[in-house]
């Protein structure tokens, strides 16, 4: 067993767990944060994308021990008090959600991009979601939603 403490969606958490558990297991099973989805389990599809220390990473490729002293943000952490953030609203508005399985990962990848670049070019948006597969192939709507979010002043809300 390994003892780890880290920041999860703004709150300090502590956990004792088996060393061979992955971040996605810990999020879904120990913290009931089931917004993060498991797809391919090998870092190819991006469905499990979360933000670790301000960078988008695949939670299926992070071991428990790597969480020590890290800061994790999941899809549950981007909205506050049940109110969707502007990026989530734009996903709805632009029809960027079809079956929905890739959506949390897509949002986290775009969120990570907007954290460091609040005026990305379309090419930068495409690059940011290059590691996220959408089998409904709704990429255009997803890019539109990201573009619309970057264009609003409300983007400042994201980085707070």
């Amino acid at each position: 067993m390994i003892q780890i403490s880290f920041i999860l969606n703004g709150k300090k958490v502590k956990l004792e767990t088996d060393e061979n558990r992955r971040l996605i297991d810990i999020l879904r099973e120990d913290f009931s944060l089931t917004g993060t989805k498991e797809g391919c389990s090998i870092g190819e599809c991006g469905a499990c994308t979360i933000i670790m220390n301000k960078l988008a990473v695949n939670s299926c490729l992070v071991l428990a021990g790597q969480l020590i002293d890290s800061e994790i943000l999941t899809i549950e952490g981007v909205s506050e008090n049940g109110k969707l953030n502007v990026l989530q609203e734009n996903f709805l508005k632009y029809g960027a959600v079809q079956c929905g399985y890739c959506t949390p990962g897509m949002i986290m990848s775009i969120y990570a991009l907007l954290l460091k670049n609040n005026n990305p070019a379309d090419e930068e948006i495409k690059e940011a979601i290059a590691g996220n597969l959408c089998r409904c192939t709704g990429y255009k709507q997803i890019i539109d939603a990201a573009r619309a979010t970057a264009d609003t002043d409300m983007i400042t809300d994201l980085s707070q």
Binding site: G43, E44, G46, T49, M52, L55, A56, V57, N58, L61, V62, S109, E127, A128, A130, G131
Partner: peptide, 9 residues
């Protein structure tokens, strides 16, 4: 190399 997420790890 790989994807943005993997390059970050």
């Amino acid at each position: 190399v790989a994807s943005p997420q993997i390059r970050n790890m």
